[in-house]
């Protein structure tokens, strides 16, 4: 479905997710975006557009928004030194301890055979430890993706105190809601539900346990100015790296 989004057309779920992620990025100096991350990439570029030049964004796979000149390893070296404030990870499965699985579904004892094989861990097993604010994102919010326990730990949500770990999970954004993550308790809290979604619907779609207050607020929408910026300048910047995504959502 191709639609040309105008400043007045209805806010999509994708735009709600982008807005929620962008809110978590405000004020950061350096945001990096990895492979296959169009929603976080859009949020990062929106944050930059609204930062008045204070925020740097590095998008893997981009020519125009990738400052690195020392090859594929530079992003990781940069992160290892603490030069990257925020990064984004997803998972074929994510569990209540914020453990993520990018390898496959099935008994780990059968590895490498899997009932369903995902592409692989990419840089997650490293970046989850060294980037201070890792935001998890997963559009599909079902008991199949948000599981009680992941089948394979690509990267653990938390670590014992002796393990060097300045980084870790900050929040999880899905097509239904936003969860915040408490690293000390290794547990998610339902922070907000997207417009039209109830807290009960989130509970029904989530296989892991989490905390929630009696009254869960609604995820804030982007203001008119932010939405207009996203659908124009930012949409064109996103199209350079994610042409199919930008065409599908904004017709650019």
């Amino acid at each position: 479905m191709t639609t040309v989004a105008s400043a007045t057309s209805a806010v999509s779920t994708t735009e709600i997710m982008i807005g929620a992620i962008a809110e978590m990025l405000a004020g950061l100096s350096h945001i990096a975006v990895g492979a296959s991350s169009p929603i976080p990439g859009s949020a990062a570029l929106l944050t930059r557009a609204r930062s008045g030049g204070r925020t740097r964004v590095s998008v893997l796979g981009s020519r125009e928004n990738n400052p690195f000149t020392d090859g594929g390893r530079e992003l990781f070296d940069c992160a290892g030194q603490g030069r990257i404030d925020a990064f984004f990870l997803s998972g074929g499965q994510i569990d209540g301890g914020a453990n993520i699985n990018l390898v496959g579904v099935g008994d780990v004892g059968d590895y490498p055979r899997a009932e369903a094989r995902f592409p692989g861990s990419f840089g997650s097993s490293y970046l989850y430890f060294v980037v201070p604010r890792v935001i998890l994102f997963r559009e599909e919010h079902t008991p199949r993706t948000l599981v009680e326990e992941v089948d394979f730990v690509s990267a653990p949500g938390t670590s014992p105190p002796e393990v060097y770990r300045p980084g870790g999970p900050h929040a999880l954004v899905t097509s239904l809601c936003v969860f915040s993550f408490d690293r000390n308790r290794a547990r998610f809290t339902l922070q907000s539900v997207h417009p039209g979604v109830t807290a009960a619907a989130v509970r029904a779609a989530t296989a892991f346990d989490y905390d929630a207050s009696a009254e869960v607020p609604q995820t804030p929408r982007l203001d008119a100015e932010g939405l207009a910026l996203l659908r124009s300048t930012v949409a064109r910047e996103v199209a350079e790296t994610y042409p199919d995504f930008a065409r599908r959502h904004w017709g650019v």
Binding site: G71, G72, R73, F76, D77, G80, V103, V108, P112, G120, S121, F122, G123, S124, S125, Y126, L127, Y128, F129, V130, F152, V153, S154, A155, P156, S159, V163, Y164
Partner: peptide, 30 residues
């Protein structure tokens, strides 16, 4: 299965002619 910087680090060890390279992270991963 690997993780991106682990492959790069292994190649860097070979580049330097040394037997191994240390890397942060990974502990607790399957």
């Amino acid at each position: 299965d690997a993780t991106c910087p682990a492959i790069q680090a292994g190649l860097q060890a070979a580049e330097k002619g040394i037997p191994f390279m240390p890397l942060r992270g990974i502990i607790g991963s399957d």
